[in-house]
Design a protein around this nucleic acid. Structure first.
Length: 151
DNA sequence: GCCAACGTTGGC
DNA sequence: GCCAACGTTGGC
């Protein structure tokens, strides 16, 4: 069982949007970065735990805990011609992009990015590293324990 | 809106 | 295969 941090723009899918979904579950569509895709496709298992993170917004930070509820399968949005996530180089025979499903475990308080940067022991967390832009990053169990204790 | 950082693309 | 140009991410 692994731990992850997954970024979502609240204008797209917020923690409240997730809470309002049927089964409080959402397909993590739209990832178009190979490293992030590989994490989902090759490493994520049902039951893995996820820090749900709001990015590109007024108060970026962790807002909830979720779990992987379905293993990776082809991201439907890559086939939607004219859609924002359409990939003309992909096909149903050879899909390029994959997503897992993520189900809400619980909403938490907002733990802002600025606070995370000041938590002793979190300095090496991947999402806090300079220049990091990956929307999906593995979380060290020690980092997870530190964060969960403070949520 | 700015811009640092980094990934991707495409000409050669 | 190199690398300049370009696009995107995402905090501030």
């Amino acid at each position: 069982m692994r731990y992850w941090l997954m970024k979502s723009e609240p204008d797209d899918v917020s923690i409240d949007d997730l809470a309002a979904m049927p089964n409080q579950t959402v397909a993590w569509y739209g990832v178009r970065n190979y490293q992030a895709r590989n994490f989902m496709r090759d490493q994520m298992e049902v039951g893995d735990l996820v820090l749900f993170y709001h990015s590109s917004c007024r108060e970026p930070g962790i807002v909830g805990i979720a779990r992987v509820s379905r293993k990776a399968y082809p991201d439907e949005t890559q086939f939607e011609v004219g859609g924002h996530y359409h990939d003309p180089k992909s096909s149903r025979d050879k899909p390029r992009w994959f997503n897992v499903d993520v189900q809400l475990t619980r909403k938490t308080r907002l733990m802002p990015l600025a606070e995370m940067r000041h938590i002793p022991g979190l300095e090496t967390m991947m999402v806090l590293q300079r220049g990091n832009r990956l929307s999906i990053t593995p979380v060290d169990p020690k980092h997870w324990a530190l964060i969960e204790k403070l949520l």
